[in-house]
């Protein structure tokens, strides 16, 4: 007797969101009408994309392991971005404007704009611009960048429940994409999307950041909230069907399990491979939970995740082999 394996059909699907415009080579994510990676029963017009993170300043707390691939390029975002796109194969770049944070030098919005311009000149891939974190400074920096590079379809990271109006306004005015962030909470994720659509953002220009917990550090919460957001979207919820972005690198490369050397903990094995494994395991689990944009720090991690995705989507992005 043969198995009657019915493909699971859903009333809803994920929104398609195009990252990058103008001088960028645009990249669209989303569009799937089934559970993440369930290519055997659903259609996925676009595959998940992978970004590498570059920084405006020499990041004070990065481990040597993750500094090494960027030797001489840390704090030179344009050069780093070029290497990320051309040599390391990043689908897009995340420029982390960490140096604009008051505790890390407090670079001005105009200085930030210069960095953005340099990166935009250096590469053609879409660009995610991450501000210094919620607050007035974040708005000043990202609003400035958004206005100056209008039409480039930048991905602005990020707006949240308490503070979204400024970035929403510049997203609308200057043709960008906005990341809506929520603290591992489906209801808040939905609420932020509602608030954004309420201020006239077309949700085709929104990505959800459900807040990433790294492996061993809350991954299970992120994983489940993403699965639930995905299920709600497939169930037809128009306010939760944005593609999701996960900032994996910054969560992974600060935890004890990647910082401790093999000398200190011989059982834990080679530190460099362990760190990359940590990043790959976090990234891949979250892709399984529904991440469409994954931001990594180590190029080897990107290469390894990319290899799996390449094989997975080898027959073209739309991969319904049913």
């Amino acid at each position: 007797m043969s198995l009657k394996l019915q493909p699971k059909k859903w009333p809803g699907k994920i929104r398609e969101v195009t990252l990058g415009a103008g001088n960028r080579q645009p990249r669209t994510v989303g569009g799937g009408n089934g559970l993440p990676l369930h290519t055997f029963e659903a259609d996925f017009p676009h595959r998940p994309v992978l970004a590498l993170e570059v920084t405006d300043i020499n990041p004070p707390r990065w481990l040597d392991i993750v500094r090494e691939p960027w030797e001489g390029l840390l704090g030179k975002p344009a050069d780093a971005a070029r290497k990320a796109a051309e040599q390391y194969g990043a689908d897009l770049i995340m420029l982390n404007l960490m140096g604009t944070h008051p505790d890390r030098g407090g670079r001005s919005p105009d200085q930030a704009a210069i960095d953005v311009e340099a990166v935009l000149d250096a590469v053609r891939v879409p660009l995610i611009v991450k501000g210094p974190g919620a607050g007035a400074k974040q708005n000043d920096v990202l609003a400035r960048v958004a206005e100056k590079y209008h039409g480039e379809g930048l991905v602005l990271h990020s707006a949240c429940q308490e503070d979204y109006k400024t970035l929403a306004a510049v997203t609308v005015a200057y043709g960008h994409v906005l990341v809506s962030e929520s603290p591992i909470d489906l209801n808040i994720a939905k609420q932020v999307d509602i608030l954004l659509s309420d201020v006239n953002i077309n949700l085709d220009r929104v990505l959800i950041d459900p807040l990433t917990g790294g492996l061993g550090y809350g991954l299970e919460y992120t994983y489940s909230v993403m699965e639930r957001i995905r299920l709600a979207a497939l169930g037809g919820d128009q306010m939760l069907n944005s593609p999701m972005i996960c900032l994996v690198g910054e969560e992974v490369w600060k935890v004890k399990e990647v910082k401790v050397s093999e000398r200190q903990e011989p059982r834990w094995g080679d530190q460099e491979t362990r760190g990359i494994n940590w990043e790959v395991a976090t990234a891949w689990s979250l892709i399984e939970a529904g991440a469409e944009v994954v931001v990594l720090r180590h190029p080897d991690s990107l290469a390894r995740v990319r290899k799996i995705l390449d094989a997975w989507f080898a027959e073209g992005a739309s991969n319904n082999t049913r």
Partner: peptide
């Protein structure tokens, strides 16, 4: 307008 109008819209 770009500099000031946004303040009306975002509540500043």
């Amino acid at each position: 307008l770009r500099e000031q109008g946004i303040k009306l819209v975002d509540g500043r």
